[in-house]
Amino acid sequence: MAVIIFSALFLILNCIPQEDKYTGTREKMVEDQVESRGISNQLTLDAMKKVPRHKFVPPNLLDRAYDDGPLPIGYGQTISQPYIVAYMTAAIDPQPGQKILEIGTGSGYQAAVLAEIIDSVFTIEIVTELYKSSEKRLKELGYKNVLCKNADGYYGWKKYAPFDAIIVTAAAEYIPPPLIEQLKDGGKMIIPVGSPFLNQTLILVEKNGEEITTTSLLPVRFVPFTRGD
């Protein structure tokens, strides 16, 4: 009897994810950098608390993984500021059961956050080295619902279209027509605009039938930069 109890206990304990030493830091990050700035989407907040951001940054920047800013990840790319990731996630309002396309996997962090919420994440990265490292990382972290591809994101991923939402993380000068096509009716696309180390403006694209509208978003935390309006 004791053996059974102890075995059961052992099993239960191993099923519960062990706290990593950054859990507290991560929760503080969500509290201070995300929630306090007006993000209230619970699914997003929960996802941000779960995903170990420190696993997605270069080893020499581990101590800064939860800082309030972007970090370089090589190949001229950055892992976005936690707030931006949260904001973009909340803006497209992901729900369980959805299919979302990400253009520009980068470190894989955004894909991981989405994967905590929705059923399927399809993510495309054009830089082969980044694709390989992020795919490996996502697999090792157990994100089975993320499918990665090393390709030109301009053409989207027709095989799995249409998508409930599309996140374009690579700065684009225009919105590729194939992506518009692969967005579901009623779907949303979000694109950050701006320099990688500067807080970015987010553009939300909404498709309603034939009508496509864009909205330039500001993170709610930042009051509109106006005077004398």
């Binding site: 864009t214 909205t215 330039s216």
Partner: peptide, 9 residues
């Protein structure tokens, strides 16, 4: 109409 700005200032 087609392209909104959150900050319309």
């Amino acid at each position: 109409r087609f392209n909104k700005l959150q900050d319309t200032s």
